[in-house]
């Protein structure tokens, strides 16, 4: 396994995702002789995991079962240990497309944070591209390095422990794209410009507050960036539910059986309605929005150096 290459079977040293059920999962480092506790009982790595196919059902000691999944940047994002606030896949998708990333792209990123975006960037630019990521917090920088090594992608990334606002990205005239997720991105726009290739490239800055966006846009304009564009992306998730609505009793004549009266007046509906287990009710499938959703992560500001 590697985060940039699929493997069929689980091997010693792999990072695998244990899927317990509805949105409930966690990552596990596969090691001979190790055991992992789940609410369904124990998983013994040597016998239950190593050599099995990714995507298999694994029966735990108490008889319950889990699925073992191949890691992807998206699964990692949902399961990684948080050292900072992280970017989620909805924003990451738009960042990747709007920065025009593809195999071979050279990207600069700061800060590394918990490495959620980093893994997605590495996935996209592999096998010939490279990520230069800058993190001013020494412990976080080291932890990120360690994870990249464990995930088999260290050859695609360089982690530098310095302050991007003061010292820049440590590279110049090399990048196709720059991404900033720092508290004062406007202080790094100059460095971003010099990191980008002379012939141009794309930049993105992620900020939660509109005041940060305003200062960033002014700085981008000052440094001659064009196509400055700010947007926000919101994810709406729907639960698929079978809903049953009661037919009100309007005192219709007794010869009319309740429910069937409604149905027969809407013959076109019958296909969708299906069987009605309850008399006097109508069933239908609906995509029900979650009671609460993420209303704001951050504003994404994109621009072009040309």
């Amino acid at each position: 396994m590697s985060f940039v290459e699929y493997g069929d079977t689980i091997k010693d040293g792999d990072t695998a995702i244990v899927f317990l059920g509805h949105e409930s999962m966690f990552p596990v480092k596969v090691q001979h002789g190790t055991v992992t506790q789940t609410k369904y009982g124990v998983i013994r790595h040597s016998t239950d995991l190593i050599g099995k196919k990714y995507g298999s059902k694994v029966t735990c000691s108490k008889g319950g079962w889990v699925f073992i999944l191949h890691p992807t940047p998206e699964l990692w994002t949902m399961n990684l240990p948080h050292r900072t606030q992280i970017l989620y896949s909805t924003d990451i998708s738009v960042i990747t497309m709007m920065l025009e990333l593809k195999p071979g792209s050279i990207v600069c990123e700061s800060g590394t944070g918990s490495g959620s975006l980093s893994h997605a960037l590495i996935r996209t630019v592999a096998p010939t591209g490279h990520l230069y990521t800058v993190e001013f917090h020494q412990q976080r920088a080291e932890k990120a390095k360690e994870e990249f090594r464990e995930h088999g992608v260290e050859h695609l990334v360089t982690v530098t422990n310095q302050d991007v606002c003061k010292n820049g990205f440590g590279v110049s005239d090399i990048a196709d794209a720059v991404f900033l997720d720092i508290p004062s991105p406007w202080e790094a726009i100059g460095h971003a410009k010099s990191a980008l290739k002379a012939e141009g490239g794309r930049i993105c800055s992620f900020s939660p507050c509109i005041e940060q966006v305003q200062r960033t846009c002014l700085a981008m304009e000052e440094y001659g960036f064009t196509e400055i564009n700010t947007l926000e992306i919101l994810l709406r998730v729907y639960n698929v539910r079978t809903i049953s609505l009661q037919i009100p009793d309007l005192g219709k004549a007794a010869e009319d059986n309740s429910g069937t009266g409604f149905d027969s007046s809407n013959p076109s509906n019958q296909g969708i309605l299906g069987t009605n287990p309850q008399p006097g009710a109508v069933q239908f499938k609906s995509g029900v929005p979650l009671k609460e959703m993420v209303g704001h992560t951050g504003y994404l500001t994109f621009a072009t150096k040309s």
């Binding site: 966006v213 992306i233 919101l234 998730v237």
Partner: peptide
């Protein structure tokens, strides 16, 4: 979604939509 659930062999099914909002940013 319903048919895939019946068939099996799939997990983590998610039905979603994104909303895109553009901003004018000027002093």
């Amino acid at each position: 979604y319903t048919k895939l659930r019946e068939r099996g062999g799939v997990i983590n099914l998610k039905l979603s939509e994104t909303w895109l909002r553009n901003y004018q940013v000027l002093p």
